[in-house]
Design a binder for these strands. Structure first.
Lengths: 163, 163
DNA sequence: CAAAATAATATGCATTTGCAATTATAAATC
DNA sequence: GATTTATAATTGCAAATGCATATTATTTTG
């Protein structure tokens, strides 16, 4: 391969260009590469279960934080609101989630996961756990925890909502 | 918020469930959240320049490693090969890249970035650098470097190609 | 408290995407 | 060395996506 080598002097310029940093030192690039594989691998497992990425993400979030307004769920699940709306149509008609009007604000629809929904996610979870384990293979616990700590800071830095 | 708390007692399972780990401790979740924002923010900047995510990713990779076969470029750029094929149609007709048959293997088309292509990427780079800086705001250099080191290990663990 | 601005969700529609099939070339096998 | 198998790239097509908009409800403002 012919990747440009990193320069010896790593001085504080206004900002380095991508060619100077190098793809393999540019965190967003590496993260896109890793999550591209993670999501593609997971998608393979989902198709057998009749799930798509938006549907799976909604279920995964709801399995941890139930009864969310759709707009919040869209943020947590990293799915466009309109895409999520349609994914929820399918999940609801398959009985994996249920829509319930918010009693305090009738603009809001809250989404709850059903037992069937939890069961569907349970079926997928072994695959998720396997890919997750593969990702951190030979990476010590301490390093993984430091990594997660940095991720949490990054999310705080970049997010546009309070959560 | 109403995140479920971990149960007090749980029998020794082969692996924890997502609810036990919690979204904010699950690295793939955090990474999807962060990259979702990063990519959405960047997309905003790209539209003004007539770029899309696949087109921008192809250019970004080529600015570092030029003259790649399309299939390799698809891996580097994290874009489906068929999507990339069409993105290259547009980039080529806009003069940002050029297709050249590989002399050794006539199945292969190699893609080169043009000066115009580099110029287009240069126009976007300040925005990329700004979002990148925002992401790592208040995160010390040492921590960022450790983070990147972990990312590199993770990519090695999960990737399906040699690069 | 009426009017205007904001917010939550759903939907119409054009574009984009990804899978599968196609075409063309190279490598492997017998 | 002819035939089978594998690889690279493109393309047809159905499905998914995202933007803009519509609809309904709430909050803010004058």
């Amino acid at each position: 391969m012919n990747e440009a080598k990193a320069p010896e002097t790593e001085k504080a310029e206004p900002f380095q260009r991508l060619g100077e940093i190098g793809l393999s030192n540019f965190a967003p690039y590496l993260m896109n590469r890793i999550m591209g594989r993670y999501n593609a691998d997971l998608r393979q497992e989902m198709t057998g279960l009749g799930l798509t990425t938006p549907k799976m993400r909604a279920l995964a979030v709801l399995s941890v934080i139930d009864d969310l307004p759709i707009s919040d769920l869209a943020v947590y699940a990293v799915v466009e609101q309109s895409t999520l709306s349609r994914a929820l149509d399918q999940l609801a008609s398959d009985g994996l989630v249920r829509r319930a009007p918010d009693p305090n604000d009738s603009r809001v629809t809250r989404i709850g996961i059903t037992d069937t929904g939890r069961a569907a996610l349970d079926q997928l979870w072994p695959s998720m756990a396997r890919i997750y384990a593969q990702m951190f293979k030979d990476i010590p616990d301490e390093e993984r925890q430091a990594f997660v700590t940095t991720l949490q800071k990054m999310l705080k830095n970049i997010r546009k909502h309070d959560f």
